[in-house]
Design a protein around this nucleic acid. Structure first.
Length: 190
DNA sequence: AATTGCACCAACCGCAACCCA
DNA sequence: CTGGGTTGCGGTTGGTGCAAT
């Protein structure tokens, strides 16, 4: 998992892959004390063997206290579809209209849930196509185009209800609740 | 019970835009 | 104006868990 990137000047070790609990705590602590600042120097000053880029991503997508995870509501889903119809794959722009949601989460959600069903609907309309307008294939400029596939699709909200974020398990050391992390951070006296 | 295939998500990568000396 | 460093974005990939067989 660890990699060494040969750096002619310093030969700095750079960690990649999943973040450990210790790393998360270090990052949370450091930002709580010093604020966000310049990510590359933040990573160095905090003693993290990560790139600034990696720290930024981890913070924005996972550690930030206001980040909401899982439980995409039907309203949010509708909004995502509307905004995607308007703007296309401008995930960060879309994310700005969904408080607490990250572009990464919305992008993943779109690709794994919505896009899949649009494709299915395309295939369906292709098979039965004789008289059908291929709405889903026309460029997404109208909300209703994207809505159609969903009429035959009941989203797995039930699944979401049982998922409310990463919880600690014996099998995955990378899974713990943000409440755990933040309370640990508080216990550290900061 | 074991194996396989699929769905999901976290994190990486490359590139473009931005900032500043 | 320019070049180097940083940030932000979108696409992609690898690992994991779960359902189906």
């Amino acid at each position: 998992m660890d990699k060494k990137l040969c750096n002619s000047s310093q030969d700095v070790e750079v960690r990649k892959g999943p973040w450990t609990m210790e790393e998360d705590l270090i990052l949370i602590n450091y930002i709580a004390n010093h604020g966000e600042g310049v990510w590359n120097s933040l990573a160095r000053s905090a003693g993290l063997k990560r790139t600034g880029k990696s720290c930024r991503l981890r913070w924005l997508n996972y550690l930030r206290p206001d980040v909401r995870r899982g439980n995409i509501t039907p309203e949010e889903q509708l909004l995502i579809m509307e905004l995607h119809a308007k703007w296309g794959n401008r995930w960060s722009k879309i994310a700005k209209h969904l408080p607490g949601r990250t572009d990464n989460e919305i992008k993943n959600y779109w690709r794994t849930r919505i896009q899949k069903h649009i494709k299915q609907a395309e295939n369906f309309s292709a098979q039965t196509s004789s008289g059908h307008i291929d709405q889903a294939t026309t460029s997404s400029t109208q909300t209703c185009n994207v809505m159609n596939p969903m009429e035959t699709y009941s989203p797995p909200y039930e699944n979401f209800q049982s998922f409310s974020g990463p919880f600690p398990t014996e099998t995955n050391e990378n899974m713990w609740s943000m409440e755990d992390l933040w309370s640990m951070q508080l216990l550290n006296g900061n």
